[in-house]
Simulated scan of single mutants.
Amino acid sequence: MGEIYRLAELKDAERLLDITYRAYETIRELGLHWPAATADLELIKDNVATNECYVLEIEGIVEATITLSRGEEIKALTELPFVKWFAVNPDARGRRYGGKLLDWVEENVILGKLGASAVTLATAEKHPWLVPMYERRGYERILELDPQNGDGTMYLMRKKLIDQPTTIQRG
């Protein structure tokens, strides 16, 4: 079977809840108010149903997930595609499943399907390794904001996928 990249289905919700809850342990310890960190099964199902939630399945088992937001809440910050709810099975650390899934979504969905030349995400300054990890992957900080909810400084980060003006196909 190998590696399969696909849209999540509602039947994946329990596995996604397990992965996300365990992967977001540091987020909860830091007291960050990220919905994915405290999601229940209904919120996971809602995410799968209302957004484009992608998974990387290895030998028939979902090991990583990432969501391309369709929500209007991000439109106040950016018109670029926005990824969120990125989680990798903590038992699979070091296998690059997260990097492979993020690469696949950037290349095949954001650039290939949407025709967008850049992608955005948001993360917290106080997280010990997320900002440097995304910077190593080519993301740059483009906006600092404080949501006034105790999370402190958040960064909107952008990665240019190709060097040309950003376009988004509508339709």
Rank of each mutant, 00 (worst) to 15 (best):
M1R: 11
M1E: 10
G2I: 00
Y5N: 06
Y5A: 03
L7G: 06
L7P: 07
A8H: 11
A8R: 02
K11T: 08
D12N: 08
E14L: 05
Y21H: 12
Y21P: 02
A23L: 07
Y24H: 13
Y24N: 14
Y24I: 07
E25Y: 07
E25H: 08
I27K: 01
R28N: 11
R28D: 12
G31R: 06
G31Q: 09
G31P: 09
H33K: 14
W34A: 12
P35M: 05
A36F: 04
A37D: 11
D40Q: 10
E42R: 10
E42S: 10
E42L: 05
K45E: 09
D46V: 00
V48T: 13
T50I: 03
Y54N: 09
E57H: 04
I58L: 14
E59W: 02
E59P: 05
G60W: 13
I61A: 10
I61Y: 10
V62K: 03
I66G: 08
L68F: 07
L68T: 01
S69I: 00
R70S: 05
E73G: 00
I74A: 00
I74W: 06
L77H: 12
L77V: 00
L80K: 09
L80P: 01
F82V: 00
F82D: 09
K84E: 15
V88D: 05
D91K: 08
A92G: 03
R93S: 15
R93I: 03
G94V: 00
G94P: 05
G94A: 02
R95L: 09
R96N: 15
G98R: 00
G98E: 03
G99L: 04
L101Q: 04
L101G: 04
L102E: 08
L102Y: 01
E106R: 00
E106Y: 01
E107L: 00
N108V: 00
V109P: 06
V109H: 09
I110Y: 06
I110R: 02
L111I: 04
G115M: 07
A116R: 01
S117A: 14
T120L: 01
T120Q: 05
L121T: 12
A124M: 07
E125P: 03
E125V: 02
E125Q: 15
K126D: 10
K126T: 08
H127L: 09
L130F: 06
L130R: 07
V131E: 13
E135H: 05
R136D: 14
G138K: 14
R141K: 14
Q148L: 14
Q148D: 13
Q148A: 08
N149I: 12
D151A: 10
T153W: 09
L156I: 14
M157N: 12
I162M: 13
D163L: 03
Q164G: 11
R170L: 10
G171Y: 06
